[in-house]
């Protein structure tokens, strides 16, 4: 039921953001979605956190920041045209 609700919210967001250049979905909505998916599947966040070593965290952080920079650049390039 939660998921259905989120999808409804997103439909509206997509409609709005489609009118012009891509603005993306509000981070809060994505957070809600991810929280929902984890909860729905019975994931224990605290337990999951403990499985990540400090090195893991550092590596993941760098990887995601790098990917994010590349995506931002791509989006910028494509909205310039």
């Amino acid at each position: 039921m939660h998921i259905l609700m989120v999808k409804e919210v997103l439909k509206g967001v997509k409609y709005v953001s489609n009118e012009n250049s891509p603005k993306g979905i509000p981070n809060k909505v994505v957070d809600l979605l991810v929280t929902n998916i984890l909860r729905k599947n019975g994931v224990n966040i605290e337990q999951a956190k403990n499985k990540l070593s400090e090195e893991d965290k550092q590596a993941l952080k760098e990887m995601v920041e790098d990917l994010k920079a590349q995506v931002d650049e791509f989006v910028k390039q494509n909205s310039k045209k």
Binding site: K14, S17, N18, S21, P22, G24, I25, N27, V30, D31, L33, V34, T35, L38, I45, A48, K49, L52, K57, L60, K61, V64, L67, K68, V71, F74, V75, N78, S79, K81
Partner: peptide
């Protein structure tokens, strides 16, 4: 002809947002 596929850009943005949200929950960021 010049076409821009904003959908691909929006989709990539959504994907990276999900990734960021996920590792945010895990206190990585």
């Amino acid at each position: 002809v010049t076409t821009t596929d904003t959908d691909i850009a929006v989709n990539l943005q959504a994907m990276i947002q999900i990734l960021v949200a996920l590792i945010g929950q895990l206190d990585v960021l």
